[in-house]
Design a protein around this nucleic acid. Structure first.
Length: 212
DNA sequence: GGAACGATTGAT
DNA sequence: TCAATCGTTCCT
C-alpha cells in the first residue's frame, strides 16, 4: 500500500548551501520522510518559504542571535523548530554556512505514505487536512521541540530527492507576515496549481510562474 | 517585572 | 471573523 519507501535516501548537506530562495524552490517535489514509531511517513513538498539574513525583517534572526533562533546560525541541514501562537509548531530547514542565519519554512505537502499515522496525529481524516499548512505538516510528522537542531541530512528524518519533479512553479509573497516584515518580498515558492498548498496567493500579490 | 505579539488553526 | 494559548522579545 502507499508506495515503495525502501530506496529513499537523504539529500546531502551541500544542497542547503545554495541560495536560500533556490533551496526553497528546489525543495518542491522533494519528499519529506520520517521513520517514526514503526511507521514510514512520506509527503511530497509543494510549498516552502525562504527567510533571509539580510534585508528581511520577517526573519527570526533579523535582530541578531537569541536563544530561540540560535539553530538558524548552525550548520546547513539543521532542523529549526519553534512554537507559534502558544500552541503550534513550525518546521524550517536551515540553509547557508554556519553563522549565516537563513532557513526555509516547510509550509505544505502532499501526503503519500503513513496516512493512517498522519490522520491519528492530526485528528482529521481528509487528506487535504493533513499537511496543508506549516503547523499541520509538523503535527502530521510528529514534530516536537525535541526535534529542534536535529540533522535533516541523515538518520530517520530526512528530505529525499524528487521522484516526480514539478512542472510549473509559482513564486509569490509569504504568508502571515505583518506590515514592515518583508511582506512584499517574493520568497514563497509553490507547485503551481497544486491542490495541496496551504492557501492561495493574496489576490493583490504578484505571482511569477516559472516553467521547468 | 510586565505587556504585546506572533512564519496558525479551527470553529463561528 | 474570532478565540485559543504561551514563549519570546522588548520596553520600563
Amino acid at each position: 500500500m502507499g508506495m515503495n519507501t525502501a530506496e529513499l535516501t537523504p539529500i546531502p548537506p551541500d544542497f542547503y548551501l545554495k541560495p536560500t530562495r533556490t533551496v526553497a524552490r528546489e525543495l518542491l517535489g522533494c519528499l519529506l520522510v520520517r521513520h517514526l514509531d514503526g511507521e514510514t511517513l512520506v509527503a511530497r513538498i509543494v510549498e516552502a518559504e525562504a527567510y533571509l539574513a539580510e534585508d528581511d525583517p520577517g526573519c527570526h534572526a533579523a535582530r541578531g542571535r537569541t536563544e530561540r533562533n540560535s539553530v538558524m546560525f548552525g550548520p546547513p541541514g539543521s532542523l529549526y523548530v519553534y512554537l507559534i501562537y502558544g500552541m503550534h509548531l513550525c518546521m524550517n530547514l536551515v540553509t547557508q554556512p554556519e553563522g549565516v542565519p537563513e532557513a526555509v519554512l516547510l509550509r505544505a505537502a502532499e501526503p503519500l505514505a503513513g496516512i493512517g499515522a498522519m490522520r491519528a496525529r492530526r485528528g482529521r481524516h481528509a487528506l487535504k487536512d493533513l499537511c496543508s499548512g506549516p503547523a499541520k505538516l509538523a503535527q502530521a510528522f510528529g514534530v516536537t521541540l525535541a526535534d529542534n537542531s536535529g540533522d535533516i541530512t541523515r538518520g530517520d528524518f530526512f528530505v529525499a530527492p524528487a521522484a516526480d519533479p514539478p512542472g510549473r512553479i509559482a513564486i509569490t509573497t509569504r504568508v502571515g507576515l505583518g506590515e514592515g516584515c518583508g511582506e512584499e518580498l517574493l520568497l514563497r515558492s509553490m507547485i503551481a496549481d497544486s491542490p495541496w498548498i496551504s492557501r492561495p496567493p493574496r489576490p493583490d500579490a504578484p505571482v511569477i510562474i516559472e516553467e521547468r
